[in-house]
Design a binder for these strands. Sequence first.
DNA 1: TAACCTACCAAACACTTGTTAGGGAAGATG
DNA 2: CATCTTCCCTAACAAGTGTTTGGTAGGTTA
Lengths: 203, 203
Amino acid sequence: MPTKKKPQVTAAAARRRELLDTAAEVFAEQGYNATTVRKIADHAGMLAGSLYYHFDSKESMLEEILRSFLDELWGGYDAVLGAELGPRETLEALVTESFREIDRHRAAVAIYQKENKQLVAQERFAFLAESQRRFEKAWLSTLERGVAAGVFRSDLDVRLTYRFVRDTVWVAASWYRPGGQHSPEEIARQYLSMVLDGIAVRT
Amino acid sequence: MPTKKKPQVTAAAARRRELLDTAAEVFAEQGYNATTVRKIADHAGMLAGSLYYHFDSKESMLEEILRSFLDELWGGYDAVLGAELGPRETLEALVTESFREIDRHRAAVAIYQKENKQLVAQERFAFLAESQRRFEKAWLSTLERGVAAGVFRSDLDVRLTYRFVRDTVWVAASWYRPGGQHSPEEIARQYLSMVLDGIAVRT
DNA sequence: TAACCTACCAAACACTTGTTAGGGAAGATG
DNA sequence: CATCTTCCCTAACAAGTGTTTGGTAGGTTA
């Protein structure tokens, strides 16, 4: 029985996570296809071939980055959805949770936003489509619940509203900078104020 | 003096435009970097090298696509801004005009949306940064004018609101399909209804 | 008819790409 | 001490990249 095996495993996992983080940064900044494994290796302070000691391929890095992001995202979402709040409170919680995820996984969100459309076609990234479906279902049902309960306007096209809300939330990852002057909660508050009450003065 | 020179020139220009349109489609679908000149040539029914009879390089195709899109966009915007409408009417007209441009230049908008961040760094695409500045100025001043005039709420962060509005409008190019069930004007109406009045029922 | 131009093809070029194979330094293990 | 494992380097590979060069069928012009 190996006595000192576990510390090595966690150290390797930590290094792996470290490399994935730097890879995610480069992917987010330059785009996946425009990013060469040599650039990733540069940022990590090593040579291109050495990356293959840790990973099977460039594509598997991308997969692991997106997988771990979506896992955490759904951890937060499921907690919100499981709380069985009212429609308005659910929407507020989902938006706030989304901006928190952007704060924590800015790079992964940016990659997802940019590459999702091309990746879902590949069967390796089928989990993206799965996530997309659950995502749409959660948001649509919340909006519909709100319309039925009379807390959201019924004259809006729900699908169209869903698309607007979804896009605006996630596209924020392209300009959001952690440690900037707005906290995720502050951004969520402003955003919810706009979407829920509008920017026009009530007359 | 050449007698039949003009028809040939316009025929060449038409073919050029035709090739740029197919190139834009492929760029929008696969991403600029992931698109090979051979793929463009395939879609155009010719061989890769033949493209270089019409264009200097792959990059010059991209530049011409974006340039002609921005030219038309600013044609519409300048007309709106020159009309000197009230802030709310200006915002409504800008949004509507944007969705019309998406309808007419879906591919170019999608490319712009996806590649803008990496392109502005190159001096060849400095006109993108210029356009970006004018864009921000037009929207910000409209919002500020509205706040000053009391038609927009004053408790909103104007810069944040600008980002939300800007992103949501343009990201629509990723899911909008011309000839679909919503006209650009209908989408603009729904969007303006959400942003101006909010989705919550007024109590 | 002869000379010319337009718009494309065929074939190659230099270079970059993701990936692999073999080796070696440094520390942990027995 | 010797052995093993971890983690990286060196050097190369085959495939794919944007681009160039020379040629040519077919219509236009003189």
